[in-house]
Every structure is written in structure tokens, then in C-alpha cells.
Design a protein around this nucleic acid. Structure first.
Lengths: 356, 356
DNA sequence: ATATTTTCTGTGTACGCACACGAAATTATT
DNA sequence: AATAATTTCGTGTGCGTACACAGAAAATAT
């Protein structure tokens, strides 16, 4: 019941405080050049009434331009990161008249040097704020340190490095999502069932997120003392699909009781495809993220569950919060875990439709 | 790549079309008083460039006030409808400077006459648009007919009457949510398990939504030929809790293999409470909506699943779309099914936190 | 006491649009 | 042809705020 905005304008405040509109403006924006006497008079009125500025008028009148730079992995249009980009685009549209400009920069997520190079370029364009996916821990820390010296605020998306002094983080609680994946996947499996646990080799680059997800997964397993099932860990190759199929074929010939499988990234569609070809389509599958191919397999009942994390929202809200913080000086929440959405064949349709 | 708004103003359009700004305004708002010649000239420019008005400036300059009336069931603050109200409130804040005013009216959801009375009152205040929960089919149809004669647009929330010419509907696909509930509840139950299916007596008032949910539920049962389980249908009383406990106690004494139970409304916390008292807390429970009590039981692992439907969003988007349609003359989607969110102990926290 | 600097303050213009009012152009009437 | 009625059109003002600039007041120096 507090937000009772009775439409008080700057003009009114000026009258009440017995000063000019310009003075009120100076107090509001802490521009200085105000005598202590009139500052107090204005502040008093400001505290009494519950002034909330007309944001429409404010951004209409404001001449300031804001330049946000986004630093995310380069990707194909079918990839997870494309959803993130959609969020940026939507924010760019919605906040168009706030005079914001969103610049995108891409790095190779399998090459830390690429991140370093692109981040250096990025600084040159002197952005007002930076949004990045902190895939490489050390390189990110070096970069954020530089940003801090330049007094450029930054936010993390998708994953987070706690040591850095970021503005916001939007992303999933990865540990928890691995835990949930385990619960869904291992729930009431027959005795002595075998479960494939797949990782993807990334040329030595370690993804924080994947590790956290696996930890969550294993945590569920040990907490529930699932001694009746057998986990089979496999390493997939990110490029050589024939080799992958070979590996899988091999595993299935040696193990006849495989009932379930999980990938900790968005590549479950590949697994589904292999199993389809190898005629093991009845294995319970679970994976992450709503790539079109994943969704297709979910609808065909070949994938049983997908876990989603609202990537568009992550991107959109990150921009929104930057506007709130930088332009409107509002306070924002630092760490924002997005919901861990459980998608099955039956609820995927409405979920996708509803979009944002 | 189309929304490349290059910031073209009315002034520019006027210059391009060789007319005055006033004329452009008249064409844009179809105010008439424009010669066919200049109308065409302006329209041509409008089609060529991709003019998108500055909504900030538009609503800043607009003197119009909009009055939206909401007609929903009266309720306690712990109820489902409170979430809907939150959505209205949030919209009221966000769209404050669009000069909208949201009026709330409440009817007794167990008394159709109350709906009629309140709706009559509502019309007197001459709202620009109406948002309602169409609990009573016939009475709603009579009301919407009247609104249509008065040329007052209206939207449905929570459930929908297809025959009426509504602006939007936000709500769940109830059938589908019942189907999902069945899938979650009946998944790998032991042989010969008994399942309680609860309805609440509403003094003869039939809720569309509950019926659709039950249909969805039963549809899953018959599709999957679950002959190994036994459904036990029970009628609960909405007021007499002692009687309910009696009934449940009775059922459990006569049936020793009850493994699961479902309520098709938000009252699963009552069921959980009864079962706790009756020492049957190990029954798998499922219910709807995130009342605090339901959430508490979910976190305690007494309720296994909750199905949610984003009530705040339903309300918020309904208002948003009304603004889009009435104030900004944009086109909107008529039927909007909200996602059927599956909540378990492990993902409820982030879901609640994320809020909107 | 006056000149000079510094600190402070009031006013005017712009943002992009809506809308009112009066003027101009067109058409109808005498 | 002259005037009245009607249709069309152009301009000016305001929405609530930001910000620049000139000018007043106060403080300091001469």
C-alpha cells in the first residue's frame, strides 16, 4: 500500500521547498552546486512526500546514451546461446527509447586466448557496462580487474565467478539442477539397471557449470544410496560423431542392462540420434536446454525430460537490471537463480508458446 | 533484423509527405478531417519507413485516462486469487504513467447471484475494459452480452468461455494439466495400488476448470490402460474439516493399499494435514498452486508435486495486453495458455525466488 | 570600499507526441 | 458573384523531466 504515487512533479517540490526547479534537479541528481541550506530544504520535502519520478518523462528528456557490451561464445543459430541473444534483442527493443545500445562480441568457447583477445578489443569501445559469460575463470578475473580499474560495471550470465565484484548474476543453480536430473532419471529404475553418464571433451577446457551439475547428480546418488544401479561414465567427443557412435555401440554390446542416460549439456539430441540408429530408443534420456532438436525428440518421447533455464530471461533481465541500476539508480538483486524448469512431452508445447 | 528503428519522428514524416504534423497525427490516429490526397501521401511514407512511435512520449503527452475493472472471487490473503491480485498490482505500478486505473470487484465464488449483483454495479462505473474470472457460465454470458452492447471490451482470466467474444484469455490448459498430474502421480506405482481422487463439493456450483482437469486425468488413465491400479473417488466438504478427516479415516481403514492421492484444486494442504494426523504421510500427493501451505508441505516432502500456473503473470499480461490493444492499438494474441509448471521439493526454491 | 573570483540559482529550451483552436481552402447556397 | 457552411489544415501549447547558460549572491582578494 505504499506506492501511493500522488503524481507530484518537480515543480511542486520546488514550490514546497521554496527553491527553483533547477535546484531540485541538482539535489535529485546530486550534481553539486547547491547550498547546504537549500539542499536540506529539498531533501526534507523529498523525504516527506514519496516522490517517484515519471520515468517516461525522465528518459524522454535525457540526452544520455548508454552503451552495453555483451561478451558471449560464438555459436550457431540452433545453439543455446542463440536464445540468450534473443533476450538481448528483446531488451534492445523494449528499452530502445532509453537510449541504450547493445554491442555484441563473440569468443571461441574452446579457446581462452580468444576470450582475452576479444575482451581487449571490447574495452577499446569504452562501454558503459559489460555483460559476459565467464567461461574461463582466470582470464575472466583478469578482465574484470581491468574493468574495475576503469570503473566499468559488469554482470555475469549463465555462470558466475564469486570472487569478482559483479553487478548481477542470472543463471541456474547448476548443482541443484544436476541433483534434480538425477532424481528424475534414477527414479524407480529396475534393480541392477545401468546408467550412462556422458561428458563431452572440450579440449581440456573445464566448464564450471558441467562440473557443478555432475556434483549435484552424484550427490543425489550417494545421498540415496543407490547401490542397486550401476553408473557408466563415458567421454564423448565434441566433433567426431562417428567415433561417438562407435563408443556407444561398444558400451551397449558390453552392457545389456542400460536403462537410462544423461548428458550434462545441451547435446542430448546427438545421444538420442545415436540411440535411435543403434536401436536403443527405449533408454530413458535426460538432457538440458530447449534446442529445437531436443524439443523434437522430447515430443517424440525419445527424450524423457529436458531441464530448461530460461536463457532469454537471463539476458533480458540482465539488461533490464543494468538500466534500473545505471539509469534509474534503483537497487537490484545481485544473485538471481533462474527456475529449474522440468519439461516433459506434455508441457513443452505451452511452455514454448508462452515464451516470455 | 526488421525492427531497425532509425528514430523517425512525426516531424520527419510530415516533411517527407509534404504535409503538416497535425495531418500526420490525424492519419496516425484516424481522427478523420483529412483529405484523401494527404491521407495517401502520409500512408505511403508510413508504409515505406517503419515508423514506430515513441511510446514514452506518446503516453506522456496523452491526456486519456483508462479505467479497467477486475471481477474476481473474494478470497483470503493466503488464497490462490491473492497471487492474481499481485499481478494486477504490479501492472498498476508498471503502467502507472499510462494513466490507467485498476478497480477491483469481488464476488462470492459459491454464489452465482453475487456475481450478477457485482457485475451490475461494475457497469455503472463505466469502465473502459473489464477483466473477469468466468466462473459461472450462464451468468457470465449474460454479462458479456451486455458489455458487448456497451462496446466495452473484456478479457478472461483463469478459465474461458469460448462462445464469448473476449479480447484475451490467460490461463492453463486444464485438460493437459490433469493429464500431466496423472502421469506424475501414477508413474510406476506398485501393482494393485489404490489411488484417491478428491473433489470438493461446491454447493452444486460446477467449476469448468476442475472438470477439465479430471477429464485430462482420466484420459491418461484410460490411454495407458492402467488396470493394475484402483481409483477411489471421494467428495470432500469445503467447510467441515472434521467430516473430511472422518471420511478419509474411513477410506484408509477399508483400503489398505492406498499409495497416492490427488486434489484438483489448491486445497492439497488440507489433505496433507489430514494424512499427517492420520499417520498416512507416506502417500504420494499431488495438487495445484503455490499457496504457502502447499509449498511448506512440498518442502517437507509430504506433497510430492505441485502444479503451478503463474497466476501473477496471467493477471499482469492481461493488463499489459489491454494497454497494448486499447492504448497503443497493437495486435495481441487471443488465447494464451500459460506453462504447466512442475514443482518438486528441489526446484521450488528458485522458482519462488525468481517470482516474475 | 571596490574588484574579482567562486558558489549558487532561476529560467529557458528540448525530448516526441497529443490535442485544441483558429485559419485557410473547398464546397454549397443564395 | 458573393456569402455561408463545411471540410481541411497549420501552429501553438503542454505532458514532466534534463540540462545549459546567464545572471545573482556570496565569498574572497585587492
Amino acid at each position: 500500500m505504499k506506492n501511493q504515487n500522488t503524481k507530484i512533479r518537480i515543480k511542486d517540490i520546488a514550490t514546497m521547498a521554496g527553491v527553483s526547479e533547477g535546484t531540485v534537479d541538482r539535489v535529485l541528481h546530486e550534481r553539486g552546486e547547491v547550498s547546504e541550506k537549500s539542499r536540506e530544504a529539498v531533501q526534507k520535502v523529498l523525504d516527506e512526500i514519496n516522490y517517484s519520478p515519471n520515468l517516461l518523462a525522465r528518459s524522454l528528456a535525457s540526452k544520455k546514451h548508454y552503451h552495453f557490451a555483451c561478451l558471449i561464445p560464438m555459436h550457431k543459430v540452433t545453439d543455446y546461446w542463440e536464445s540468450v541473444e534473443k533476450g538481448f534483442s528483446q531488451a534492445a527493443i523494449d528499452y530502445l527509447h532509453y537510449n541504450i545500445h547493445i554491442e555484441r562480441k563473440y569468443f571461441n568457447q574452446f579457446d581462452a586466448n580468444s576470450f582475452v583477445d576479444v575482451s581487449k578489443e571490447l574495452v577499446k569501445s569504452q562501454p558503459d557496462a559489460v555483460i559476459m559469460a565467464p567461461i574461463f575463470r582466470n582470464e575472466t578475473l583478469a578482465f574484470t580487474k581491468e574493468l574495475q580499474q576503469l570503473e566499468i560495471p559488469f554482470s555475469f550470465i549463465d555462470s558466475m565467478i564469486e570472487d569478482a565484484d559483479f553487478l548481477t548474476y542470472y543463471g541456474q543453480n547448476s548443482f541443484q539442477s544436476g541433483y534434480i536430473a538425477a532424481k528424475l532419471l534414477l527414479n524407480s529404475l529396475p534393480d541392477a539397471a545401468q546408467v550412462l553418464v556422458l561428458r563431452t571433451d572440450r579440449k581440456g577446457a573445464v566448464s564450471n557449470q558441467t562440473i557443478a551439475r555432475i556434483n549435484g547428480f552424484m550427490s543425489f546418488v550417494s545421498e540415496n544410496k543407490l547401490s542397486n544401479i550401476e553408473l557408466i561414465h563415458l567421454e564423448m567427443n565434441d566433433e567426431n560423431e562417428d567415433a561417438n557412435r562407435e563408443i556407444l555401440s561398444d558400451v551397449f554390446s558390453k552392457n545389456t542392462n542400460i536403462k537410462a542416460a544423461i548428458t550434462f549439456n545441451s547435446r542430448v539430441y546427438r545421444l538420442a540420434n545415436h540411440l535411435e540408429i543403434l536401436q536403443h530408443a527405449d533408454v530413458r534420456l535426460i538432457g538440458y536446454d530447449l534446442l529445437q532438436k531436443n524439443v523434437d525428440y522430447l515430443k517424440q518421447d525419445i527424450v524423457s525430460y529436458l531441464i530448461a533455464q530460461r536463457p532469454e530471461k537471463q539476458a533480458y533481465f540482465t539488461i533490464r537490471d543494468m538500466c534500473a541500476k545505471l539509469i534509474q539508480k534503483q537497487s537490484i538483486t545481485k544473485i538471481n537463480y533462474v527456475p529449474i524448469d522440468i519439461l516433459i512431452k506434455e508441457n513443452i508445447e505451452d511452455y514454448m508458446q508462452f515464451g516470455e
